[in-house]
Amino acid sequence: MKSSPVSSPLNPYHHIYVEEDIREHPQTLRILSRLPKGQVIPIQHYKDVFCRTRQDIALQHRAQALILARKTGTLIYPGAPVCQSFGNHHFYYTSLCMNCPYDCQYCYLRGMYPSGNLVLFVNLEDYFRELETRLAEHPVYLCLSYDTDLCPLESLHGLIHAFHHFLAIHPTLTVEVRTKSACIPLLRALPPTEQMIFAFTLSPDEITVFERKTPSLGARLQAAKEGIDLGHSIRLCFDPMLYVPGWREVYTQFVPTLTDTLGADHLKKVRDFSVGTFRISQSYLRFLRHTTSSPIVQYPFVNLDGVYGYPPTLAREMEDTLCDALSAFAGPDKIFRWEDN
C-alpha cells in the first residue's frame, strides 16, 4: 500500500453515543450544543457501547468517546470502606459519570470499568429527588466526584453549578468536589459557601507524571490559593501518596513547595488536610495491572483483608513523614489520615 495515510488524531468526544430515551433531555441538548463537531450516534443503552468485550482502555483514554445516558437504580451510595469520611456520619457518594477526563495510571477506574470512554448521566433531577429523600431523614455529606473529576468538564455539563443552586435550598447538605484541576474560572464563577468544599488532590511533580492530562502541581496550587482568597472552603488532599524510589526526599521537599506557593496565611485558612497512601481492592488491581506496565501499579502490594496497599510499616512511615511536615502549619485536628478512618 503506497498511498499516504489520511488519518489524523481524534479530538476528545469525537463521537457521542446518545441513548435514544434521553435524546431530547435538556441536559443532552445542552451538552450536544457544546460539542457541535461530535458525531452523534443513537444507541439503546449505554452498556451496548461501554461494556463491549476486549476494549483497549489506554487507547480509548487518548481520545475518549462520550456516552450520554440515563442512570437508573440507586443513585446515592453510602461511602465505601476505602473512602475517607472526614468524620461525617452520613457520608455518601454519587456517580454522575463513569470514568474521568484525566488519565492517572494508578486510577482504580481502569480496573473497574471495561472501557476508557466517558459516560455522563443526564438525569440530574432523579439524583436530586433521591437526595431529598435522604435529606428528609438526616443531614448528608456527599462526595460528588469520588470516582471522577467533574471540574475539567464543568463548561460541558454544568453539574457543579447545578449542585451549587441545590445547596442554597438544602442547608443540611454539604458536598465535596474533589479535583486535580486548576479550576480558577469555576471558583470565580461560584459564590463561596461552607456547604461546597473544593478538595484539591496534590502530588509532587515526581508523581504528577503518572497523572496524565492533569495540570501541574503549580497550577493546582494556584487554583487552591485563589479559592482561599475568594473565600471558598478548601481542602488539600495528599491521597494517594505513592511509593517511588527516594519517596522520603520527594515528599519532604514537596511541603516547602506548598508553603512557598500558598504562604502561611493561606495554609491557616485551609479547612483540613487528608493523607493516605495508595490502596485498591483486590479485583480492581488485577485488571488495572493489565492496562499498564507502570511500576506504580506493578508494585508488590500486600493484601490486607481484600484491600491491596503498601506493607503497613512502609505505609505508616510514608504517612508519618508527610503528617510531620504538615504539622508545622496544621494541628492534628485538621489532618485526617486514612489509617484513622
Binding site: S7, P9, I41, I43, D48, D56, A65
Partner: peptide
C-alpha cells in the same frame, strides 16, 4: 447492535 471504535480518524462520512 455492534459499535466498532472509530480509530483512526480517516475523514470519511459516517453512517449506521
Amino acid at each position: 447492535p455492534y459499535y466498532p471504535d472509530m480509530f483512526p480518524d480517516i475523514g470519511l462520512p459516517e453512517a449506521g
